[in-house]
């Protein structure tokens, strides 16, 4: 436990330093409205990362969720454009994407195909399929009238943005599932040692499939929020989810030594708050990517402190 505490303290210190820096640099940073804005932004990264967290928990890699989310958002936009209501559109596209996620799960779980390469393949194919809805053109029709934009603009009790509500709800449910329920243990057992899990009576393939479905679903929800914020169905909107989601999950792992719901949140929070701060300082977007990548690398290096020390010692000796 003490090892975990040490990393946690290190990360919180780091986070505090970042917050302090932004507060000093921009008076707008430490305001309620900015935090609501930041949380709204955070919710997109955080939700996508949460789905990925399940896949990493079962010991696999998903390279398709961002592509799947593009398909879901285009499907939703398409349903909206042909006149369906927002609820139906969202649910119908989630259903579609769940079945595609299940395909990943079956290929990797049941047939034992290598996760990374298979999901790159299925992801690309599904991304190609997403073009069927509009040939890659934006989908505007009915967007404003249908009420779908409430997914981003709506507020619970007039203050809390809907994306934040969705994020909190999904995190709470996932926390219950992964850390409090008996099913959560099976996810970790499968990820840790699939053979031992099987000999303990756990249906390994089933848990792998569920994890891939959750990953596809959550990324899709994140991208739907994103698309409804943009006010148009844009095919490439979800592609950018890949990097921050992986970074968030791995920052979480480097603190808690395994993929966890809270670790993923801390990871997503750290990344988002940096992006928000840099936006306020009007730093161009590509610097943010740079910072996200560096914080991913830095956090993992930090978590392997023992490796660093032995490495430094070796260099000294050699």
């Amino acid at each position: 436990m003490s090892e975990v505490n040490k990393s946690l303290v290190a990360f919180l210190t780091f986070l505090a330093a970042i917050l302090l820096m932004f507060t000093l640099q921009s008076e707008y940073f430490l305001t309620v409205s900015n935090f609501l804005q930041a949380f709204k932004h955070l919710s997109i990264t955080a939700i996508a990362a949460l789905g990925l967290c399940f896949v990493v928990a079962v010991g696999k890699a998903d390279m398709s969720f961002h592509f799947f989310s593009c398909f879901a958002a285009m499907a939703m936009s398409y349903f909206i454009s042909i006149g369906y209501g927002p609820v139906f559109s969202v649910l119908a596209s989630l259903l579609l994407i769940a079945s595609l996620g299940l395909l990943n799960g079956i290929l990797v779980g049941r047939f034992g195909l290598p996760d990374m390469v298979t999901t790159i393949g299925t992801g690309t194919a599904v991304f190609g399929l997403a073009y069927l809805f509009s040939g890659g053109r934006y989908i505007y029709r009915n967007f404003i009238d249908s009420g779908i934009m409430q997914l981003n603009d709506g507020k619970l009790f007039g203050t809390i943005p809907i994306p934040v509500v969705v994020m909190v709800a999904l995190y709470f449910l996932s926390w219950l599932l992964l850390h409090k329920s008996k099913y959560g243990r099976n996810f970790y057992a499968v990820g840790n040692k699939p053979l031992a899990a099987r000999f303990s009576g756990i249906k390994v393939a089933r848990y792998l499939a569920i994890a891939f479905v959750i990953s596809a679903l959550f990324a899709s929800i994140a991208n739907m929020v994103q698309v409804s914020a943009q006010g148009k169905g844009e095919i490439r909107a979800g592609v950018t989810l890949l990097m921050p989601a992986w970074a968030a999950v791995f920052v979480g792992i480097s603190i808690f030594k395994k993929p966890t719901v809270y670790g993923t949140f801390i990871g997503a929070f750290m990344i988002s708050i940096m992006q928000n701060g840099f936006t306020l300082l009007s730093v161009p977007f590509y610097y943010m990517d740079f910072v996200v990548a560096l914080s991913l690398i830095g956090s993992i290096i930090l978590a392997n402190f023992d490796v660093i020390t032995t490495w430094i010692n070796k260099k000294r000796r050699g």
């Binding site: 840790n192 040692k193 053979l195 031992a196 303990s200 756990i202």
Partner: peptide, 17 residues
């Protein structure tokens, strides 16, 4: 490989089945 789930508690393992 087949017996226990590493880096989890004894209780986690004992009750897993």
């Amino acid at each position: 490989a087949e017996g226990y789930i590493s880096d989890e508690s004894v209780a986690f393992n004992v009750t897993l089945s």
